[in-house]
């Protein structure tokens, strides 16, 4: 159950940033059962939503148990309410912070796989928008995109005014600064326009088309924009895109956790080996000693 909070230097932001990480390396396993292969770990790079930072997933969901059961490392990243965009206006590069700084730092420091098929980008709300955009901008790095209740707010951005805050709480000038635009209208077909990015991948690098998982809650305000994007991708002819409707839930931590669990169990190519062994997550977990059973920690095996 290893959980770490790491501060490290980011070249894109020219100061230290903080991330959380969970690693399955010290998993408890019964030594008379299946032992997963020891190799560089598969990784989910998870992007948090607005008003949050790197701590949300750890504090408010049971991500650690999920990660341990599915033998995956999860790196948790905050977006500082900046929508994961590179901006020449502010001089802060939140896209590069993720795909370059965090990816390189974590791979150089921990035993993570650098293969595209082992690398996934995920996020919730603003983080869902970020997962889609970063994933589509860098299809050579990420094989899977998991976007839960993504804040696909192109129309809100384009309609923003200078005298009244938008539904997301920003003035037009804030959007211009954040996305590095002289004119808000330039958002269309920019590197932050998720529709443009999808078309670009289809036209220029179709062989690198990532698999995409989208979800939203039934009572979630972002249900509309998520289903709209799903339809958009299907119409474009996207090879592999799934949409999951979370019944009965709104825009909440529980919605995120349940959706993420579905993505982990049904969508990502993870190794469920531990689940046949000593389960951490779910009602069937049972943390009790067995008569005469022997237990080991994975790194001891």
């Amino acid at each position: 159950m290893s959980h770490a909070t790491i501060n490290f230097s980011s070249s894109s932001l020219r100061r230290p940033i903080t991330i959380n990480a969970v690693f399955p390396t010290d998993k408890t396993i019964r030594d008379d059962q299946f032992i997963p292969e020891k190799k560089p770990m598969k990784t989910i790079y998870f992007l948090e939503g607005m008003t949050g930072n790197y701590i949300g997933l750890s504090n408010y969901t049971r991500i650690q148990s999920i990660a341990e059961d599915y033998n995956v490392c999860v790196i948790m990243i905050g977006g500082e309410n900046m929508w994961f965009a590179d901006s020449q206006i502010t001089g802060n590069f939140y896209d590069r912070m993720v795909y370059h700084d965090i990816l390189k730092y974590t791979r150089n420091t921990f035993n993570l796989s650098d293969k595209r098929e082992d690398t996934y980008i995920a996020g919730f709300s603003m983080g869902g928008f970020g997962a889609i955009n970063i994933g589509l901008r860098h299809p050579d790095l990420f094989s899977h995109i998991v976007a839960m209740s993504p804040g696909l707010s192109k129309d809100i951005i384009l309609a923003a005014a200078d005298d009244e805050k938008s539904g997301q709480g920003y003035l037009a000038d804030s959007y211009r600064a954040m996305y590095g635009l002289k004119d808000l209208a330039d958002f269309e077909n920019s590197d932050d326009d998720y529709e443009y990015l999808a078309r670009k991948v289809m036209e220029e690098t179709p062989e690198l088309m990532p698999r995409i998982y989208l979800s939203a809650g039934e009572k979630d305000e972002l249900l509309g924009c998520t289903t709209a994007y799903y339809e958009y991708l299907k119409k474009l002819g996207w090879k592999d895109v799934t949409f999951n409707l979370q019944k009965g839930l709104g825009h909440s931590w529980q919605e995120l956790e349940e959706s993420l669990y579905k993505a982990v169990t049904e969508f990502l190519p993870l190794d469920g080996g531990f689940r046949g062994n000593w389960i951490e997550y779910g009602p069937e977990a049972n943390y009790t000693y067995d008569n005469n059973a022997h237990y080991a920690i994975w790194y001891d095996v």
Binding site: E221, S252, W253
Partner: peptide
């Protein structure tokens, strides 16, 4: 609320 099925921490509430 943050917990439970009634939790709904959405955009409309940001202002």
């Amino acid at each position: 609320p943050y917990f439970g099925t009634t939790a709904n921490v959405g955009f409309a509430n940001f202002n």
